[in-house]
Design a protein around this nucleic acid. Structure first.
Lengths: 232, 232
DNA sequence: CGGTCATTTGACGAGCATCAACCCCTGTGG
DNA sequence: CCACAGGGGTTGATGCTCGTCAAATGACCG
């Protein structure tokens, strides 16, 4: 159950802001808002999709387990839905999900989501919008994997992270093994790659990456809007 | 403009079958049904998304051009929409598209698609469904790329194609360079990989791949539903 | 029959995974 | 206060996978 204070907070999210009051209430009266510590597995791939998840606060990774190793599919930052596609198509989760930091997650029963989709066009549009963005993000990651080396992927990840804030540095918000699994390489090679980036305008200070010469880093990484811009 | 005969054909497509007659007509009265020979570039990445495309008949590939090379993103078979995500989110095309065989394509102006989406819930649901499937297909391809070697990807591609028909053989419907770009390797290595599959229950006869011992091929490829099943 | 294009084969090297050793930091217990 | 163990991170050595370049072969078509 939700407190009324939480409800007004949620109603303000872009995800829900424009929808009809009635459908909003119908969506949320069966929802749960839960808080999880870091490192909790929320979803295991293969299970049926019973809840739409909305990351309200924190950090979550979507990953897949393949013969003993884990590979990162995407990183979810607030406020975003995840596993929407499984809910919409009423199928099993393709991937597993775990928290990487303490997180607040809103859980909405899948049948309820599908019902409100049919009743409220505004909500339907938001859902389609989120699906489209998720699809494009996945295709961009695929493009990066097919066309770039692991060190180029890393360099572009650093640039993308740097673009999220105005500062000249990036802090890796999790351990290096996790980052490696999202870049698509191993811990060892990630370490080597970070060392090599030192020759391209960057200093490594533990988990902090200081960008001294952005132009140098960009000359090396050669970012492309249609791969690296989250908003294109 | 469309002929009435074509209209009734289109109305029967799963994409349009359940929607209201009025919205169907509104969608299609501004649409074009065009026929293209093989090898025509329909869309170039970076252009604004002005038309939703529906492949009614034929075969097209979605690909991306990266510093001189081309990489296949997905293969589209009838009847499927493509570049739906760009239309829904009103952004530029992420990828280029070309026909691989003679194809009939229905072109619907993007603003019209968005308008009907808002008016007809049934159509909205179909659109969301298609987006969800496209997203899941992309994630599956990504998983395959992160977790498997190129020869394993090829072996699983062969199995997946074999599952589409009841026969014991697969015919590559385009040249080897194109297949290589979708598997995520080069022409040369694709050729070597095909030769190596010979040790795992398969014979190569030009463009035809004959599966003599499916169990042997499966033991080698180790297909997984959550990567290789198109319907999961 | 000659030319162009698709495909194969060979040789080589770059990129990357793997295994193993080592370092550094932190927390724990004697 | 020190010894030690454990986790995260780095470094080195080695070999496999795969891309690249070059040449040969085969296929198709004028």
């Amino acid at each position: 159950m939700l407190r009324s204070q939480e409800l007004t907070q949620l109603k303000a999210l872009p995800l829900f802001a424009d929808m009809a009051e009635a459908s909003f209430n119908a969506l949320l009266d069966a929802a749960l808002l839960q808080q999880f510590p870091a490192g909790v597995v929320l979803i295991r791939e293969g299970e049926p999709a019973d809840f739409l998840h909305v990351l309200v606060d924190g950090l979550v990774e979507i990953y897949t387990e393949q013969n003993g190793d884990e590979w990162g599919i995407s990183l979810i930052k607030p406020v975003t839905t995840f596993i929407l596609a499984a809910v919409v198509s009423d199928q099993s989760y393709l991937n597993s999900v775990r928290t990487l930091a303490e997180s607040r997650v809103l859980l909405i029963p899948a049948p309820r989501v599908r019902a409100i989709f049919d009743q409220d066009v505004v909500f339907a549009r938001v859902v389609a919008q989120e699906l489209a963005l998720a699809y494009r993000a996945s295709v961009k990651k695929l493009k990066g994997h097919m066309a770039r080396s692991s060190i180029e992927r890393l360099a572009n990840w650093v640039l993308a992270e740097a673009n999220r804030g105005p500062g000249h540095n990036v802090v890796i918000p999790f351990d290096r093994g996790t980052l490696a699994s999202h870049i698509g390489t191993t811990r060892e090679n990630l370490s080597r790659s970070l060392a090599l980036l030192t020759d391209h305008g960057v200093r490594i200070r533990g988990r902090e990456i200081v960008i001294d010469h952005r132009d140098q880093l960009e000359a090396f990484a050669r970012p492309q809007p249609l791969i690296d811009d989250p908003s294109s």
